[in-house]
Nucleic acid binder design. Structure first.
Lengths: 340, 340
DNA sequence: AGGCATTGCTGGAACGTTCCAGCAAGAGCG
DNA sequence: CGCTCTTGCTGGAACGTTCCAGCAATGCCT
């Protein structure tokens, strides 16, 4: 005698099974479990129990089809910087928050986002640190679903439905103030070109701070995803010579090891001879030779905030165009101990 | 006069629209576009053109419902180590490969995987570096969908449908051979407890190598996601004293900065006084003071391989229980230059 | 020429859910 | 009592796709 495969693998229990077992119609079962509709409290309780006993799990596909929504949101990260653990933490913050609202988070493959079928696969999109020269961003914005950006998008085209922003200008000012207080007189800044809101804000803030304080900040442009080698070269040229920089702020945290290496090679002691800080906290800043002072962007919470805003937009509890602020914190460490 | 919202937002074009426009039945349209079924080549071509013109995009939900498959796979990463850029690269390798087969990749929130509705949300699962004490892994394995693990799972329960493994023993042997050749006589190994296949293999291999070469390898246990501080403490105690270690291999790449810091503090010059290597290559190893020799696990390709196997299993073109091998490469850098 | 397989297409029925109109029973009110 | 309003429930129709049975037309074989 053969085993019935279907019986063994016990094909999943449907809403109709629950309704039948509870002795009600599928509509009532649906209403009872879904929360909406008019159902007496006793019936609702009963149906809930039956569903639990039977191990009922709503079929996502059917629900999506009927509701014309997918229950998932997409996440796009800067293609150049997929390696930074900063984004890893951000992604996990977002996925946790999305989960709390019953949303799945699908990772968008760099290079394949081609707006095409996106709208039928996700209800909304998270676009983190959109760079103006990322060719996918316009497609994503035009995909026909709500989009929340992490930091503003400086390019044109369809406007995003929402954004979560950091006050990057303020954080750099805080960093520069801190360095000045610790004795820096010739600070330098390693920063990517103005292709992202973040970098652009840092550049502007550096200029403003220079004028206000009467202390010139030397600005050196580096790639968005700076390698240690590039950072080392840039730093070496900045700190060389008698009037070289006495403090280096690097915007990308990936640049930290390079900056430290250049300092070591030049015989400068980080923390006293040379102050070092980063605009993004991360493994590189926390775990280096001397630990490096950095702006903690709290990536996990940032991710949560982005997901929360998108979720609110989808639920209609946030107005399109909403902009929310995300707080940063300065982490002072050995690398800016000061000349004392 | 009011604009018709529906008309403006042009509700998406369905298969029936295509069929009507092409003058055929929906079945024929479906067959033509889906590739299967009996359709003449001319009709097929015609329907394809019409579909393209109309901008037809198949509705994922409807397809999922009918086919009883979701078109998505889930990715689970070790909850303790979500920060390592190693996993970031792996994830993006997987997402790219999945995309090539038309599969979406959904990131599984740590702590929320509770096997529950998983089976209706994904067609299969990728479980990377499953640790025996990760409470979610058994649920994932029992979720009722094919599971591919990256490295073997040492716990019991439902067996995974496939695995992609590295020969970690061989890579550690290569590393130790290399160190011995460069003059190391008292090597030490910083490695997590045997809760993961990777760490367990490294521990066994270290023992075997010791016996074979007659050179004792001091093994020190560290957490799976080692922090620099922990690594520094462990290293300090290992290299202290006259008969302290003359080479340190750290398994997790996150430990690298800590090892280097301890070396610096102890006045040992890395690369000559003290050789340093890591079992995982990553930003920490590539970007540190002296660059650190490491085993490149090629995470992106690893991710691709895992996704490829799962995809093959889903398509029936790989046998359940299949195990595939993933190749590593030794990256020799300054940190093991040798005593010369 | 008659039988039979093959080709190319069609209509209808699923898949499991949600939404809408509707209906019986009771409650409230003049 | 007759009228309306509300409550609690029901059945049917969608959502867009794929699959299956079937059917006319054609081609092949004896």
């Amino acid at each position: 005698m053969r085993l019935d495969f279907r019986a063994v693998t016990s094909r999943s229990v449907t809403l109709i099974d629950v309704a039948r077992a509870a002795g009600v119609s599928k509509s009532t079962a649906s209403n009872a479990l879904g929360g909406s509709g008019r159902v007496s409290e006793t019936t609702r309780e009963h149906i809930r129990n039956v569903a639990r006993e039977l191990g009922y799990r709503p079929n996502t596909a059917a629900r999506s089809l009927r509701r014309a929504s997918t229950g998932a949101i997409g996440l796009h990260l800067p293609r150049t910087a997929t390696r930074l653990d900063y984004y890893m933490n951000l992604a996990f913050g977002a996925v946790e928050r999305a989960r709390e609202d019953g949303l799945d988070l699908v990772l968008l493959a760099p290079g394949t986002a081609g707006g095409a079928g996106l709208a039928s696969r996700v209800d909304g999109l998270l676009v983190i640190d959109p760079e103006v020269d990322d060719p996918e961003v316009p497609d994503l914005l035009a995909a026909g679903v709500p989009v929340v950006t992490g930091e503003r998008y400086l390019g044109g085209g369809v406007a995003p439905s929402g954004a979560v922003v950091c006050d990057n200008a303020a954080s750099l000012v805080a960093l520069l103030d801190h360095l000045a207080e610790r004795g820096a007189r010739r600070p330098a800044l390693l920063v990517p070109g103005p292709g992202s809101d973040w970098a652009a804000a840092l550049r502007t803030a550096a200029g403003a701070w220079s004028r206000r304080e009467g202390i010139e900040v030397t600005v050196r442009t580096v790639p968005f995803a700076t390698t240690p080698v590039e950072a080392e070269a840039a730093t070496a040229s900045l700190i060389g010579g008698a009037s070289g920089a006495d403090a280096v702020v690097c915007a990308p945290d990936g640049a930290v090891p390079g900056v430290l290496a250049a300092a070591a090679r030049a015989g400068r002691r980080v923390g006293s001879d040379l102050l070092v800080a980063a605009c993004v906290d991360g493994a590189a800043a926390r775990g280096s030779g001397p630990q490096v002072t950095a702006v903690d962007l709290r990536p996990s919470e940032y991710g949560r905030a982005c997901a929360a805003l998108l979720s609110d937009l989808l639920a209609g509890s946030a107005e399109p165009g909403a902009v929310r602020r995300h707080e940063w914190a300065l982490k002072v460490r050995e690398s800016t101990a000061g000349r004392a």
